[in-house]
């Protein structure tokens, strides 16, 4: 299992891109960290999630 924003998800073997698509996030608006390291956007398609990973997806909303 992969922990995504605190919830356990069956996402082992998925890429970050696939996870974001499945969870309906807009890639342009998010920052993703995996095990306390930022995953650069350019690496979303090739970064594969593993059992035990902890992912935090910060999805920004507009306004400032």
């Amino acid at each position: 299992m992969v922990k995504v924003n605190g919830a356990a998800l069956d996402a082992d073997g998925m890429t970050v891109s696939a996870l974001l698509a499945q969870e309906q996030y807009d890639e342009k608006r998010v920052v993703v960290e995996c095990n306390l390291e930022i995953v650069p956007k350019a690496q979303y398609a090739e970064t594969i999630l593993h059992d035990g990973d902890t992912i935090e997806i910060v999805s920004f909303v507009g306004g400032g």
Partner: peptide, 26 residues
């Protein structure tokens, strides 16, 4: 103000400027 620009700055600072702290808003 724009969400995509917030994400861009956050990702760039956290990956390219390892000494800096970032305080963002959403």
């Amino acid at each position: 103000d724009r969400a995509d620009q917030k994400a861009m700055l956050t990702e760039t600072v956290l990956t390219q400027l390892p000494e800096a702290c970032l305080v963002a808003a959403s």
